[in-house]
Write a protein that binds this DNA or RNA. Structure first.
Length: 530
RNA sequence: GCGGGAGUGGCGCAAUGGUAGCGCAUCUGCUUCCCAAGCAGAGGGCUGCGGGUUCGAAUCCCGUCUCCCGCUCCA
């Protein structure tokens, strides 16, 4: 059974050290998160896979790592200073605040027309540059990595002698002063972007847009986010960003949240290169750009075939690493029954569930909608009980469930049974799993087994793969621990190891074991981890 | 930001004005020849934070912060 709620995944991520709220010891900072010991491995693996796929495995791509701080003129001409904001208005009568473009001169709350003038709320963070704090000595923390690529377009094109079409890939931090960060990693103020700006001949842009859509879907599939879980949203003209002619949003079906964007693939036309160029009127731009009186360059491409300078069109696949990491975790998360629950304990859950539903049915504090949703979910569980045990948590997370006192009792009955008869396993692709292999001695109080296991783990530390050693529990517990963080292979040293040097390698997904010579382990793992 | 709900060891909960407990998890020892076994023990909370009421506050009041649900933000 896959993740039913985002809560399950978030809870695992916090409990096992994937992700922590930033500066939590001081109460945190809204919309900012830290990646813990496992999170940093997972995140690095995802980024590396993206880089390998898009840079190493293609013939038409270069990499870049541009600075976060840039001359503020970049943001003037990119359009972000002007348009990357939401004008807000306040209602003087009821003190509510609204986005100016979402109301029509009247407060939706109280109907008053006594509204303030729209005030711009710019989503870019400012920071002081240099010792003198005058009005002009500031820079923005970039709200997207894309502009670093556009600003370096000529540098990259000229130093690599690239011909169209070619692309520039970059992974890096971006910052947005979101009005209201929400939903764990989903909407945050500091995040990493994996962006490609792919430069093509005007007129071939639509064809390349489609190609990139396919390429990106294929990458998602490869890190464990299947096509069936993604919807392609062809953004309506009216909703397009200021730079875009057409955009496909890839919408992933997050538990609890539903379909939300994990990647945008935009046709940015010649907007960006045109915006940052001088002599714009001579460039034959199709995009409407603001006149540029500051740029020192023409961001053009000389086409030998037609013997003319053109401004390339740009296709931009852009994904947030955090959203990606979250999707990968959600997709990998599974709870599966490993032994049948004891009948009398199951009976107790059944009774508690019946009582819970009865109570929900006559609870007057619930709206009809909430009650119906609770009853439906509860009855579905009741009729499929040993199997649906894991959904009790999701049931209790539904809106309104907290109003029913018996919910606590139900959880109290279900949780121990779930711990006992289920295992939580992250079925991560081995290439993204934080830990590739864990080494255990079968008995932790046997010096021969412990010493041999430590030696084997030590040898694996020089393979470039993250491995761990653990002997702080019985073998079954050690396996479960590794299942929960998605370690694909567990290596156990037993008494036979002392005789012939072979170990057992236990597969995370099948729980099957095979014997492998310890001298072959690094090759064995390398073949399977990729 | 607004409206609604909530904050008690890592997690899940208990304690409704009287010295803060339980289960799970973690760690140590014994035991254990492969899937969260058993036994014994240990560590960990000035109850989100700050003020107030009171002889006394997890509990009552005010403020503040954070989280969750809705409106909004599009990587």
């Amino acid at each position: 059974m896959s993740a039913q709620t985002l809560e399950q995944v978030v809870s695992l991520a916090k409990r096992r050290g994937f992700i922590f709220p930033s500066s939590e010891i001081y109460g945190g900072l809204q919309g900012v998160f830290d990646y813990g010991p496992l999170g940093v491995e997972l995140k690095n693996n995802i980024q590396n896979d993206w880089w390998r796929t898009n840079v190493y495995e293609r013939d038409d791509m270069e990499g870049l790592d541009a600075a976060i701080l840039m001359n503020r003129l970049v943001w003037k001409y990119s359009g972000h200073e002007e348009t990357f904001n939401d004008p807000l208005v306040d209602c003087r009568s009821c003190k509510s605040r609204w986005r100016a473009d979402h109301i029509k001169g009247k407060c939706p709350n109280c109907g008053s027309t006594d509204l303030t003038e729209p005030r711009p709320f710019n989503m870019m963070f400012k920071t002081q540059v240099g010792p003198v704090a005058d009005a002009d000595s500031f820079a923005y923390l970039r709200p997207e990595t894309a502009q670093g690529i556009f600003a370096n377009y000529l540098n990259v094109q000229q130093t690599t002698s690239r011909k169209l079409p070619f692309g520039i890939a970059q992974i890096g931090k971006a910052f947005r002063n979101e009005i209201n960060p929400r939903n764990f990693l989903f909407r945050v103020r500091e995040f990493d972007q994996m962006e490609i700006e792919f430069f093509v001949m005007p007129g071939t842009d639509e064809e390349w847009h489609s190609k990139w859509l396919e390429a990106r879907l294929s990458w998602w599939e490869g890190i464990g986010v299947p096509r069936s879980q993604i919807q392609i949203y062809d953004v309506p003209k009216a909703d397009l960003a200021h730079y875009s002619k057409r955009t496909y949003d890839l919408m992933y079906n997050y538990p609890t949240l539903g379909y939300e964007e994990i990647e945008g693939i935009a046709n940015r036309t010649d907007y960006d290169l045109g915006s940052h160029s001088r002599d714009q009127d001579k460039l034959g731009l199709t995009a409407r750009v603001n006149p540029n009186t500051d740029s020192l360059a023409r961001l053009t491409y000389f086409d030998q075939a037609s013997n003319r300078h053109v401004v390339p069109f740009v296709i931009e696949p852009s994904a947030g690493v955090g959203r990606c990491t979250l999707a990968v975790l959600c997709e990998a998360y599974a709870e599966e029954m490993v032994k049948s629950p004891a009948p009398e304990k199951l009976e107790a859950v059944q009774v508690a569930l019946t009582a819970f539903l009865k109570s929900a049915g006559r609870n007057e504090n619930l709206g009809a909608e909430q009650r119906d949703a609770l009853m439906a979910a509860g009855e579905a569980i009741a009729t499929d009980l040993p199997n649906a045990l894991g959904q009790v948590d999701a049931l209790l997370a539904l809106p309104g469930a907290d109003k029913i006192e018996l919910g606590k009792k139900l959880r109290g009955q279900a949780q121990p049974l779930l711990d006992e008869s289920y295992r939580t396993v992250l079925r991560l692709r081995p290439k993204v799993a934080p830990v590739k292999a864990a080494v255990f001695p079968l008995k932790r109080n046997h010096d021969g087994l412990v010493g041999t296991a430590r030696d084997i783990r030590k040898a694996l530390q020089h393979t470039g793969m993250r491995t761990v050693y653990d002997d702080t529990g019985a073998i079954g517990k050690l396996y479960r621990r590794q299942d929960e963080i998605g370690t694909p292979f567990c290596i156990t040293v037993d008494f036979q190891t002392l005789d012939d040097g072979s170990v057992t390698v236990r597969d995370r997904d099948t729980m099957q074991q095979e014997r492998v010579a310890s001298s072959e382990l690094s090759v064995y793992l390398r073949e399977r981890v990729g």
